[in-house]
Design a protein around this nucleic acid. Sequence first.
RNA 1: GGCGCUAUCGUCUAGGGGUUAGGACGGAAGAUUCUCAAUCUUCAAACCCGGGUUCGAUUCCCGGUAGCGCUACCA
Length: 508
Amino acid sequence: MNNSSQVRVRFAPSPTGHLHVGNARTALFNWLFARQAGGVMVLRIEDTDVERSEARFEGQLLDDLKWMGLDWDEGPDVGGPYGPYRQSDRLAMYHEQAERLLREGNAYLCFCSQEELERDRAEKLANQLPPVYSGNCRALDPAEAQQRRASGEAAAIRLRIPEHPIRFHDIVHGAVEFSNEVVSDPIILRSTGIPVYNYVVVVDDALMKITHVIRGDDHLSNTPKQVALYEALGWPVPQFAHLSTILGSDRERLSKRHGATSIANFREMGVLPEALMNYLALLGWAPSGGTREIFTPEELKKEFSLQRVTPSPAVFDMEKLYWLNRHYIKQSPPERIEKLAEPYFVRAGLLPAKPDERIRKWFEKIVALLVPSVDRLEQLPERAALIFQYDAAAAANSPENADVWAAPKTNEVLEEFAQLAGSDAAPLTPERFKTIMNEVKTMTGAKGKELFHPVRVALTGSHSGPEFDKLIPILEEGSLLELPRHVMSVRQRLDRLLTKSKADPSSD
RNA sequence: GGCGCUAUCGUCUAGGGGUUAGGACGGAAGAUUCUCAAUCUUCAAACCCGGGUUCGAUUCCCGGUAGCGCUACCA
């Protein structure tokens, strides 16, 4: 089953918080590559940093990943043949391999104190030399060193970096070469017995039979150490693919300073997972030809190619993500969007926590009305203000509407409209509205803007908004529903406005 | 300081020794609509700089510059 040609990739986050977009993209590229190759995706939790790791973050991480639409074949939650999948459960393996390196002479015990090392480093830096380890303990007699350690002297374990340049091939960057002169003999096991990241990764990746290491390019400079480690351990070196960094608009590394950066943030904003996936895929990758932008997850699995990943860093562009999101929102079945949008309205106090069937039916119309004008679901309640909130004073006095009130036919149009619409007992229908408007038109001679604008301002308080055909039924039906905040009917709005202008003579 | 990576419109990118350097987001203008949004059409907008190789470089090589990363008993 597990023949040597089987692709195995891994995503290895630290549980230090919510999944960040940079890591999400790394996870995505791993996933796409694995799924396309019919390979295996491994999820490994890098929790050796006890200070920053928290168990509850692991659950968040998995949720974020699942929400994006990613899945994995082996991991802490699903198990697998190469477990355990949490580094904190693998400590024995790290010790075992470190002792083996020691025995075989590829690593050595180092007794240098931190102060010594720091002094040495500062000196080298001052002399403009690469700050590599002095090698003081490199030539120590192994037997003697073992004895010192046995007698209780604090000792770290260092890897012996070979005396030749270290070369490796990177799928994204091509041939990479580092001179051994600048690669320090790295500590792999601290004197406290806690292994170091660069060592742990290699042991895990090798033992988990990872064939392709796809990760952020902040690890590129660490790769020679890791290659040396693979070689010292006698294990095959995997293929590497180092992905460029995602930057903020100021070309600095994307951080919280730049606004939303965690997957959870985007989810809360009402970004659809497929929009985020599509956008992230386009950061650093483009299809052959480079003219297509829209890719569903299934299409990405088919089209994606690591060979086409760009090595240069990419600036995260919210606007383009929003554009994609708008596309996917419009593409989605309305029921899905209604379901996703409902909580935003409940939270804003516009809908009851458990809307009944009538309210739901009515809410469908609101969503259909507003969705085209929105690029995130979270914007919906504020767009719905013209339905849920009616402020007669603002309608009459807002400077935005001054032009409309100043127009010569406004008062005449409104009076006619109020009279006709007010004389009906039944709720106003779009058909009746059309008839009324035609009558107002003949009686006042107003048409176009001078006809519609006064009515729009009178009913919504704003001179811009959606079509009356769709808006009026929403207002009329809404006024009959039991809602946390009463929705005013057309007539109620007119009443408000007219009483208002009577009470305030300055408004004409 | 040392080492590494990167460099095409404002942004994401395609392309590649000879092209009107293509697409998308955003921007501008127009169409449509009572208005806004949406939609459609059109337009503006780029090969970091300097050397070399070459008949010819934006493309290949070298150098510079800038940005980012690594340089830890951080991950």
